[in-house]
Amino acid sequence: MDRPSSIFFFFLSVAICLASLQLRAGSFEAPGPMVFPLLLGLCLLLLSIILFVQSGPTSPANLSEVLSPGELVSVIYFMGIFFLCVFIFEPMGFVTSIFVLIVLLLKVIGDKKTVSALLYGLTMTLSVYLIFVKILGVRLPKGVLGF
């Protein structure tokens, strides 16, 4: 199962090397910003080749054992909700975005009923707001609600 990851790291290390080559090399006495990342990229490249050679071929069946479609769908849902929260965090405010995040996660991941998810979401959002904003004084975006 290491072949796909070795290919990923091979291309990543090639990208690192190519991007490093755009930087100043400097001299031997005063190495520039290129030297260290280029060395790291080359080391990663070498290791990814070794991993590729050591690993056996991977069939699609092997791959689906590690990454089942059901799991991937859950991950996509979860991260989709997360990035939605990130997207609305500053314009809509902390309270609104966190409420949306919690309710959607409870619905999608926790399979809660809508009323239950809304009640949990409200309670959890208010608790977090009181602890972090009111008690600990953390500065978080106010957004549309104004608090």
């Binding site: 997360f82 929260c85 990130v86 965090f89 500053e90 966190i98 995040l101 919690i102 996660l105 409870l106 991941i109 926790g110 399979d111 809660k112 949990y120 959890m124 977090v128 972090f132 953390v138 500065r139 978080l140």
Partner: peptide, 25 residues
């Protein structure tokens, strides 16, 4: 199902509070 959203919220607050930068989140 309740714990995970809560941990995620803590992580978002913690990450955001360092530099108040949503891109870091």
């Amino acid at each position: 199902a309740i714990l995970f959203p809560l941990i995620l919220v803590f992580a978002i607050i913690g990450c955001y509070s360092v530099n108040s930068n949503i891109l870091e989140v």
